[in-house]
């Protein structure tokens, strides 16, 4: 199903099992934070892992998803799932023009253009009235799912976030293993050749970019509802950097890498929080060890050693 091969199907079943038992062992809000980060990293991985384009501005789409979900939830009192999906719409709506500009270049230029555009989005968010500037949008209600499930209950919220995460995860997998995904991989492997076969590669890259930003927006929307807040941190370039770190650590171009990477990064942030600034130092050290010792990332390295396709 969903183009999963045997190893990946087993991995996915394991992941679903973990999703089910996790809230009974760990603090549900922590797991929800992890899942939002994981979905964000999976969306980012779609670009870097399968199109070969490093976006350094994905926080813009994640953050805009946060703001729009928070704003619609607070002012329109819409259904919680609708608000999360509004985050996705915001991500895609922003991704379309920004992607249209950025995909004209590749490599370091693509990274720099996405960074520059994301900085513009950041300053827009500082100034625009609807974001609340430095204060952000606070006290966002979680509301109800389908009008009757009260999401102020952490467990109810958890199942919603877990379902959204799983849907996004499987959608990305389907995209990668679709006729469209096959063309994406050919572009990653040899773009001039793909062009010479008659593929208008820019169209494919743009669609992939918009799908990626849409899912980043969904991840942002979910996060805004979980914590009831949307702030400038969510659109800040450090968030863009963190998703790069997460994905590299877990394993570029692997199915489970971004999820494992998110688990490591979010855990470090939570459990090392009492050491203050040392979190950043530790993250930096872990990142360096990763780049020097196991470049394929945690999952990439395991998959290569055990000859599995994870």
């Amino acid at each position: 199903m969903f183009g999963l091969d045997r190893d990946q199907a087993i991995g996915t079943l394991l992941l679903i099992a973990l999703l089910i038992i996790a809230p009974f062992i760990l603090y549900p809000v922590f797991v929800m934070q992890l899942l939002c980060a994981a979905l964000f990293a999976c969306a980012f991985n779609l670009m870097i892992g399968y199109v070969g384009l490093l976006s350094f501005g994905h926080a813009a789409f994640f953050g805009m998803g946060c703001y729009v979900a928070a704003w619609t939830m607070k002012h329109w009192h819409i259904d919680a799932l609708a608000a999360i999906l509004m985050g996705g719409v915001a991500g895609a709506a922003l991704g379309l023009p920004l992607g249209w500009l950025a995909i004209r270049r590749s490599g370091i230029y693509f990274a720099m253009i996405t960074l520059a555009l994301a900085q513009m989005v950041y300053f827009f968010c500082v100034e625009a009235p609807f974001t609340g500037g430095e204060d952000g949008i606070q006290q966002v209600p979680r509301g109800h799912l389908f009008g009757f499930i009260n999401l102020n209950n952490d467990m109810a919220m958890y199942w919603l976030v877990a379902a959204v995460f799983l849907a996004g995860f499987l959608l990305i997998h389907r995209i990668v293993h679709s006729p469209f995904g096959q063309v994406l991989k050919s572009i990653r492997e040899n773009e001039p050749r793909a062009t010479s076969l008659g593929y208008r590669t820019d169209d494919y890259k743009l669609i992939a970019f918009v799908l990626s930003t849409c899912l980043a927006g969904v991840a942002g929307g979910a996060k805004a509802l979980v914590f009831g807040i949307a702030t400038l941190t969510d659109v800040h370039y450090s968030t863009s950097g963190e998703v790069v770190l997460t994905t590299l650590l877990g394993g570029l171009g692997t199915v489970f890498g971004p999820v494992v990477g998110a688990a490591v990064v979010v855990s470090m942030e939570n459990y090392l929080a009492r050491f203050g600034d040392w979190v950043t130092v530790t993250q930096g050290a872990v990142f360096m060890v990763c780049v020097l010792a196991f470049r394929r990332g945690i999952v990439g390295e395991i998959a290569a050693r055990l000859k599995l396709s994870l």
Binding site: F2, G3, R174, H177, S178, P179, Q182, V183
Partner: peptide, 15 residues
Amino acid sequence: QRARGASFDFWRSER
């Protein structure tokens, strides 16, 4: 695949 279409279908299985 290019000559015969269906290359934008990201929701279908590669099967």
